[in-house]
Computed example of a mutant assay.
Amino acid sequence: MSATLEAIGVIRSGFEQRFGTPRQPGLVPAATAVLQLRPPYDEPAALRGLEACSHVWLLFGFHAVAARGWRPTVRPPRLGGNRRLGVFASRSPFRPNGLGLSVVRLQGLLLPPAPCGLRLADHDLLDGTPVYDIKPYLPYADAPPDAQAPAAFAAVPERLPVRFAEAVRPALAAAPAGFEALVRETLALDPRPAYRRGEHGRPHGVQLAGHEVRWMVDEGGVEVLEIRPMAR
């Protein structure tokens, strides 16, 4: 049995590389995005009533790793990257059909004369992600009060304090509104691989909203060392 999926739209977000993109939705409230709908799905009537929703489900494709196929077992970062788990017991992107499912905050609808789409926040979606479907989030049906998950997955990720070196203050002042919060919330999650978590003083770089951000982790948390606009 097989089926063909056609993307109804594409995500435009400030997460331009896998490194630094949150591993789950709901972790970076400052992360905003636009879902640009494609013809013939950019019909305003298809969005009628969605404005009453605070959140929506998005069915999307893990396009950045699609060529790497799937694996029956994976090593989730939340388990330290050393323990293997069945792919169906994880949220790994290396899945048989390469599909992901995220609940994201709906900030508003984009309607004519603008191209049709959705304004989103609090997401975990890489720029260029194809979206295959949209559904409203229904609290009574989608949040079972007795839901359980493995302890390692159920715990809210630890957040590190983030501070900015004085040298980056001019770049922050020149950046778009919300950029400082995006950097702070993203780096507080410590996007480094599990095997790097014990290292201090090693510089790292991440691309966020058109900027290259250099940072490191020390005993006091995360320090942002440099911010510079990326050449386009």
Rank of each mutant, 00 (worst) to 15 (best):
Y195Q: 13
W215A: 02
W215E: 05
P150I: 01
G201A: 03
G210T: 08
E199H: 08
A177I: 01
G178T: 05
L187D: 03
G205R: 15
F153W: 07
A151C: 08
V206W: 03
E158F: 07
F153M: 10
R163Y: 10
R192E: 04
M216Y: 06
Y195P: 06
G198P: 12
L172C: 05
E166W: 11
H204C: 13
A143D: 11
P157H: 09
E212R: 14
R184E: 11
A167E: 10
E158K: 15
Y195S: 14
R202S: 09
A152Q: 15
E158I: 10
P150M: 03
A171V: 10
V206S: 00
D190M: 02
R169V: 00
E180N: 11
E180Q: 15
E180F: 08
P176T: 08
V206H: 03
A175D: 11
A188P: 00
A188R: 03
R214F: 07
L172A: 06
A194M: 08
L160Y: 11
A181Q: 14
E212V: 01
D190P: 01
V156M: 12
A155P: 14
A194K: 02
L182H: 10
V162M: 04
G205M: 11
R169G: 02
A151M: 03
R184T: 08
A188Y: 05
A154I: 00
P170K: 13
P150G: 02
D190H: 01
A188K: 05
P145L: 01
G201R: 07
P161S: 09
R184D: 06
H200C: 11
F164G: 10
G198V: 07
R192M: 01
H204G: 10
A188V: 00
G210N: 13
R163K: 08
V162G: 10
E199P: 05
H200K: 13
A174S: 07
G205D: 13
Q207Y: 05
R169T: 09
G198R: 13
R196T: 12
A167D: 09
A173I: 04
A149F: 02
F164W: 10
R196A: 15
P144N: 00
R169L: 04
A209G: 07
R163G: 09
A209R: 12
A173C: 07
A152M: 06
L208R: 11
E185M: 06
A147Q: 13
L189C: 04
D146A: 06
A165C: 13
P144S: 02
A147F: 15
A149K: 07
T186A: 03
A165E: 15
A165D: 15
R192F: 03
D142K: 03
V206K: 01
A194I: 06
A152L: 11
E185Q: 15
F179S: 06
G201L: 02
F153N: 07
A181Y: 04
P193I: 02
P145E: 02
L182C: 03
G198L: 08
Q148H: 11
R202P: 09
A147M: 12
P161R: 09
F153P: 01
A165V: 01
E180L: 07
Q207V: 11
G198E: 13
R196F: 14
G205Y: 09
M216G: 01
A152C: 08
L189F: 04
A151G: 10
A188S: 05
A188H: 01
R202M: 07
P157M: 02
L172V: 02
E180P: 12
R163M: 06
E166Y: 09
V183Y: 00
G201Y: 08
L160K: 11
V213R: 12
A173W: 05
A171W: 10
D146P: 04
E180K: 15
